[in-house]
Design a protein around this nucleic acid. Structure first.
Lengths: 257, 257
DNA sequence: CTTGACCCTGACGCTACGTCAGGCAGGCAC
DNA sequence: GTGCCTGCCTGACGTAGCGTCAGGGTCAAG
C-alpha cells in the first residue's frame, strides 16, 4: 500500500498532479485509511504512468481517458488529429520566429520594409522626428487596412521625393507643424499649398491607386493630422477657401463662390 | 472620434480584446462621452496595431509594454530571449510528435520496443491475455524506474524463453492464475516451482543485473503479483516452506528448519 | 513530547481572451 | 411615442495543467 507521495514519486509526477487527475476523473480515487489518507496499489502506479506517457506525448488530459481504452483504429485516428494539432502549433511558432526576426531587423514596428525605407529617406532629407512620426503613424494605419497596396503607394511616394517642388512643400509644411492656429503666416502657407495642388492635381486624377482608399480610412488619416497638428483645422479651412477640401484625399470645391 | 467597436475593427481585434488590454494597462483608458462610452482618437488605433504586431510575433502581453518603448539594444536582447523561448517550444512539440508517432507504431503504451517485442513473443507462445497484462504492468513499472536497464533485462528474459523448462513453468503458472487460495493443486505446483528454482538458481547469483533492482521496486513488483493474482499470497507461503522467500527477487530461507 | 515530513481540503494564480448575463444608450421605423 | 436593433457598459465564469500558499491533522523518530 502506497501513500500519494510514493505513488507520485514512482510515476515521476508531483502530488499536486495526482490530486488534479483525481479531480478530473482521470485516475480513480482509491480507498482511504483510517485517517483519511489515500492508499494506492501497484496498479495505480501503472495507470498513472500510462497517463503520463500520453500526456508527455502532447495528448491533452481531456482526451487521455478515451485514448487509454481506445481500440487501434480509434487510437490511430486520434493520434493523427493530435499530430496535426502539434504540426499547426509548430508552424505557428515558426511564423512567430519569422515575424520577430523581421522586427529585430527593421527599425519600426508594424510597417513593411518599403515603408521603413521611405521613412529612412525622409530622415536622410533632414525632416524632423516629429513629422516623421506623423508620417509613420499614418502609414501604419494604411498598412493595417490595405497592406497589398503598400508597395504601389510607397513607390509613388518615393517618386514624389525626387521632385524639388514636392520637397519644397514638405519643407514648408514641416516648418509649420508647431504653429498655433492663429499664426499670421498660415494664409500665405495656404496660398502656396493651393498653388502647388493646382499645379500638380492634373497628374493625380488619372487612376491614382491612392484614390481607392476607403472613405473610413481617409477620415482616419485626416484625424491623425487633425489630432496631432495644432493648426491643422485652420489650415483645412483656409485651403477650402482656396478651392480644395480634405487632406488625405483632396477634392475640388464646387458650387457658389 | 471612434467608438470601441470601430477602433477594434481598424486594428483587426475584438472589442473584448481591447477591454482586456485596458484592464492590463497595455492600452490607456480614453475619455468617456456623456453616456459613458469610450471615445478614441486615431493615435489609439496606431498604438493598438503596434501592440498586436508584437503579440502576433509571439511576444507575451506582459512584455509588450516594455518592448514598445525599448531602445534598440534592450529590444534586441528581449527579442533574443523570446526567440529562444519559441525555439524551445518548437523543440518540445517536435519531441511530442516523435513520441506520439512511437505510440502509434507500437502496440503498447509506456514500454520500449524491446519490451513490446517480448510481450509479442509471449503472445506467440500462446500465453493468455490475462497473464500478458500482468507481465506488461510489471515491465511498465520497471521501465519507468530503470529505463536504462531495460535492454539488458529484456535480452535476459527472451533468452529464458528459449528454454523448454522455463516455458513449462510458465505454462503451469499461467494455468494457476485464476485459482483460489485454497485450491488443492497449489502444494504440488509449489513443489515443482521450488524444484525448478533449486535447479536454476546457480545461474542467477552470478552478477545478474536484475539483482540491482531497488528494494522499493522489488516490493512494488511483488505487490502487482499479490494484488492481481488471488492465490499469490498462499503460493508465496508454500514456497517459503520449501526454502524460497520473495517473488521478484528470490532469497533462500536460512535459519531453523 | 516535540519535531520534521507527510497528508488533507480549499482557493487563488497564470495566458489571452471567449462567452454569457443583465442593463443602458442611440438611432431608425412605425 | 413606442418598439426594435445594434452597440456599449460592467462583472463574472471558463479554458489547461498544474504551482503555490493557507490552515489544518497525522505519523514515525528522537
Amino acid at each position: 500500500m502506497l501513500t500519494i507521495g510514493r505513488l507520485a514519486a514512482y510515476a515521476g509526477v508531483t502530488v499536486r498532479a495526482v490530486h488534479f487527475y483525481h479531480q478530473k476523473g482521470l485516475l480513480p480515487e482509491p480507498q482511504r485509511d483510517s485517517s483519511g489518507y489515500r492508499r494506492y496499489d501497484a496498479a495505480a502506479v501503472v495507470e498513472l504512468i500510462r497517463i503520463r506517457t500520453l500526456a508527455d506525448a502532447g495528448v491533452p488530459l481531456s482526451r487521455v481517458r478515451e485514448l487509454l481504452s481506445a481500440r487501434p483504429a480509434e487510437f490511430s485516428a486520434a493520434v493523427d488529429e493530435i499530430d496535426r494539432r502539434l504540426r499547426a502549433e509548430i508552424r505557428e511558432r515558426q511564423g512567430h520566429r519569422r515575424r520577430i526576426a523581421q522586427l529585430a531587423a527593421g527599425d519600426s514596428l508594424a510597417l513593411p520594409p518599403e515603408a521603413v525605407a521611405y521613412l529612412g529617406r525622409l530622415r536622410e532629407l533632414g525632416f524632423p522626428d516629429r513629422m516623421i512620426e506623423l508620417e509613420r503613424d499614418a502609414w501604419i494605419l494604411v498598412a493595417a487596412q490595405v497592406p497589398e497596396q503598400m508597395p504601389t503607394l510607397m513607390a509613388l511616394k518615393r517618386a514624389q521625393l525626387d521632385s524639388p517642388a514636392v520637397i519644397d512643400i514638405y519643407d514648408q509644411l514641416l516648418a509649420a507643424v508647431e504653429w498655433e492656429p492663429d499664426d499670421p503666416r498660415l494664409p500665405a502657407l495656404a496660398d502656396r499649398l493651393a498653388a502647388f495642388i493646382d499645379a500638380t492635381s492634373a497628374d493625380w486624377d488619372t487612376a491614382d491607386p491612392e484614390f481607392e482608399l476607403d472613405d473610413d480610412l481617409v477620415d482616419l488619416l485626416d484625424s491623425v493630422f487633425l489630432d496631432l497638428v495644432p493648426m491643422a483645422r485652420r489650415l483645412l479651412v483656409l485651403l477650402e477657401e482656396r478651392g480644395w477640401r480634405g487632406w488625405t484625399r483632396l477634392e475640388r470645391v464646387t458650387g457658389p463662390r
